[in-house]
């Protein structure tokens, strides 16, 4: 009995927090997704799977889903490539490297809203870059006014704002690469390229997995940078799933429909994160085997 009480007293607080902060909101979202709640009414009507059926017919939601997946896929790759690349560049103990590490991490410290407004001042039609171009007699570049350019700009800014974390994770991973193995490769006459691909990268496999999953999950929830950089435009072309959830929920007073979108996004995020983690685990086992 005492053992049970001890266990309960240790697990209890964490369990209560877990339930209140995670389980309840998820259950509530699930429940609301089956209603027509407008955010105000006292008694939302139960509509079954109607919101989910509407979701499959909503061209805007489907488009936002594809945009989100594109941002997540391209962004994840770029974050990992740039993260690892810069980590290798500043992986030394010099003061200059310490300075560059701070500089590389700095964008991540800024609020995404601030980052968005900052870059809109740089990339906007009357922004710094276009101001300079027009002063030289060149044409304005449609960084934020053309749908394809705007999406590319959004991804670029997301990568700029986020890759500092990847650098830090890869730097930590690089410290774990066995110096003996590196030395043995050097003695065996391996080139830097061969050493990287055959020694360093396999040793970083677990860090790569963590980076990929974290980046993927973060990018699938992209919202605040969309608000401040493109506002979902032009013509709704950079609306992400998270942006549309908030838009439908509060601008259109369709919290039931917004909740259905949240549930689907949550399931897709969990599914993709698990898939990536499993694929990476299989690849890691292959390397070790």
């Amino acid at each position: 009995m005492r053992a049970r009480l001890t266990t309960l007293s240790m697990v209890g607080p964490a369990l209560v927090l877990f339930v209140v902060m995670l389980v309840v909101p998820v259950c509530l979202s699930l429940y609301l997704s089956l209603t027509d709640w407008d955010g105000y009414s006292a008694n939302p009507a139960f509509v079954g799977l109607k919101n989910y059926v509407s979701l499959t017919h909503s061209a805007e939601a489907i488009r936002a889903g594809w945009v989100t997946l594109l941002i997540a896929a391209v962004g994840t790759v770029l974050l990992s490539v740039f993260g690892l690349g810069f980590a290798l560049l500043v992986n030394g103990a010099s003061r200059l490297n310490a300075f560059f590490r701070i500089v590389l991490f700095y964008p991540h410290v800024l609020s995404a809203l601030v980052v968005g407004f900052l870059w809109s001042a740089v990339l906007g039609t009357s922004g710094v870059v276009n101001g300079w171009l027009t002063s030289k007699g060149a044409e304005v570049l449609p960084f934020l006014s053309d749908p394809k350019w705007a999406l590319a700009s959004l991804i670029a800014v997301l990568v700029w704002a986020g890759f500092g974390v990847n650098v830090v994770l890869y730097l930590a991973g690089l410290q774990t690469v066995s110096k003996d193995l590196l030395e043995a490769a050097h003695i065996d006459g391996a080139s830097k390229r061969q050493t990287f691909f055959n020694v360093t990268l396999p040793a970083l496999a677990p860090v790569v997995t963590v980076n990929l999953v974290l980046s993927l999950v973060t990018l699938l929830k992209t919202y605040d940078l969309v608000v401040s950089l493109t506002g979902g435009g032009p013509a709704g072309s950079t609306q992400t799933a998270a942006y549309l959830i908030l838009w439908d929920s509060f601008h259109n007073n369709a919290l039931g429909f917004g909740s259905a979108q949240s549930v689907v996004l949550m399931l897709i995020t969990a599914g993709l994160a698990l898939t990536v983690a499993r694929l990476r685990a299989r690849a890691d086992r292959g390397v070790q085997g």
Partner: peptide, 16 residues
């Protein structure tokens, strides 16, 4: 109208 106007925010338009 400017074909690139969608890259402007309201404050930018007012300033212009």
């Amino acid at each position: 109208v400017d074909k690139n106007a969608l890259g402007l925010k309201d404050v930018g338009a007012q300033t212009n």
